[in-house]
Amino acid sequence: SLPLTLYLNRFYTVEFFQKIKTLLKEEGVFTLSIPSKENYLSPELKDLDACIFHTLKKVFPKIVLIPGEELRFLVSVRGSLTGSPQELALRFSSQEVPFKYINQYYFFTKFLPWHMEYIRSVLEKHKARINYDFEPTAYLYGIKYLNSYFKSGLNKLFLWMSHLKISFLFVFISFFFLFVFILRKEFIVPLSTVGMGAAGISCVILSILGFQIIYGYVYYKIGLINAFFMLGIALGSNFSSSLRSKFSLFLPLSLFVFSLLFFSFPYLFKFLSLKTSVLSFLIFFLSLGGGILVGIFFPLANCFYLRKKRQEKELAKKAGFLYACDLIGGAGGGIVLSVVFLPLYGIIKSCNLIGIFLIEEAIFLYLLLKR
């Protein structure tokens, strides 16, 4: 099967293969297969097959490739693994095991040396990124391969975006906020609300995916993670009433603290991946913390419009507008994170990118409110 989800991607990563390696005996053989072709590999297939090949190569010293409509990998730690059809036929005959549909000649048709050498040489030369739990390269290549079946510009878009560096995105976001700040300063608050909504849903999604990647299941934990996030919103909203007099300070501060929370995600995930499930509750507190910051931000954002005397109808309109911005950010953030950021950049870089985005918002919001 293709690694078309982060859950399935777990079975094609360095971390998973390392666990398999610890379970294999000296003569043990591990096998898996992915889509391929015998005589020609399209660019998308090259990326996918080479990614899995180089990922396996990072863990296992012995790899035998069996070409076909599915490329089968046979790997071993030591042992006497071989791809020679003569040797395999000899071993088969010596075992004297009665088979109805397989005989020693089967190996000469399946283990064709020129096919095996061709596939290996192509994959050896093709540069592809290694696949990790939190850097799911095979997930991206799997999506690109699936998209190649359809005539669309998605592959070109993914290819272009995959070469974008975070530094470029940082500069782009900076100029965008600077442009808005110069032309329409008052739009910084709605934009920050959109960003906070996107960050809130991203916090929940990353908590769920991080839990699933680390522990291999999630199921009812999804409800708990969401419940902790909603509890955080309730607590933050209640606490924000005591901060209204200093909203100009705590509004950008909540964004800055949220950025630190996102920067801490990768470190916590890596820490938990080395520990037992006893500490899994820490992920719930990540979700709780994100909810508290979202709960603090929204009421304080409304204080921006309350600082000037306005008619009740106008205030209601502004409050509704900010709420709409929050929902737009939540919807857009969930889509962009799931469809773009996670396949292209993985969890670690996505967390860093969101953190940078929040810092940008905090800076320009602070500059606006201190005036």
Rank of each mutant, 00 (worst) to 15 (best):
F179S: 15
L206N: 04
G153C: 02
F172I: 11
I213C: 02
K151W: 07
A199H: 02
F170N: 10
G197T: 05
F172R: 05
K165W: 05
V218N: 04
Y145E: 10
L178I: 13
I213S: 02
Y217E: 14
A199M: 03
F172E: 08
L206F: 07
S207C: 14
Y149V: 02
K156H: 08
Y215K: 07
S167W: 07
L209S: 10
F168P: 00
R184Q: 14
K165F: 07
L206S: 05
L183S: 08
N155L: 07
V218A: 05
Y215E: 09
G216A: 05
I213M: 02
F179Q: 12
I201P: 00
F177L: 14
G216R: 03
I208R: 01
E186P: 09
L154C: 06
S152A: 11
S167F: 09
F211P: 01
L154H: 07
S202P: 06
P190Q: 07
S207H: 09
Y149G: 07
F177A: 01
F168Q: 11
F172P: 00
S167P: 01
L154T: 11
L183I: 10
V180T: 14
F170V: 05
V189A: 05
F175C: 04
K165L: 10
F175N: 04
L169V: 08
S162M: 00
I201E: 02
S148H: 01
Y215Q: 09
L164G: 05
K185N: 13
Y149P: 00
Y149E: 08
L159F: 11
V180D: 12
V194R: 01
F158V: 02
A198D: 06
M161T: 10
V180I: 15
G200D: 07
K144N: 03
K144A: 01
A198T: 06
V180S: 12
S152C: 07
C203S: 15
F175Q: 04
Y217S: 12
G216W: 03
G210D: 04
A198R: 05
S207I: 10
I182W: 14
L178D: 09
F187Q: 12
K165C: 08
S207M: 10
I213G: 00
I214H: 00
L183N: 08
F181A: 12
F181M: 07
F177D: 00
K165D: 14
S192E: 09
M161P: 03
Y145S: 07
I214F: 00
L169F: 10
N155F: 06
T193K: 00
R184T: 12
R184I: 13
L159R: 11
F211W: 12
M196P: 03
V204M: 11
T193C: 04
I214T: 06
K151Y: 11
L191A: 05
K144I: 03
L154P: 01
N147M: 11
I213K: 04
C203V: 13
I208H: 03
A198G: 14
F179L: 15
M196C: 09
R184F: 14
P190W: 03
L146N: 05
S167G: 04
I213Y: 00
Q212T: 10
